[in-house]
Amino acid sequence: MSGVPISWYLTLSAILFTLGVAGFLFRRNIITVFMSIELMLNAVNLSFIAFSYRLQQVNGHLIAFFVMVVAAAEAAVGLAIILTVFKNRQTLNIDEIDSMKN
């Protein structure tokens, strides 16, 4: 029985990453934008773990683990920021948050 080429995993990771970038660029809801970033981080983690398999090392897992921790911390702060923004403006549309254009 043939195994799965590692490049399939990497391709999947690339696709997810690109989808994340697309979401970041094209979505207007701040929370969705933020979720797109999470998607990108997940894609990166998949790469780390796939590479780790290829290299037969545990190191990639650890990096992925740190990425998760950081993502959690980022989520806490990010959502707090989003809350303050919503409290002051009653909107989550990123296009409406532009009080500083000349």
Binding site: S2, G3, V4, P5, I6, S7, Y9, L10, T11, A14, I15, F17, T18, V21, A22, L25, A50, Y53, R54
Partner: peptide, 20 residues
Amino acid sequence: LVALLILLVWFVQSRYSETV
């Protein structure tokens, strides 16, 4: 975005033939 996707898929496919 398109460039990113093409680039990544291309280069990822061109290497790493190890199987899982």
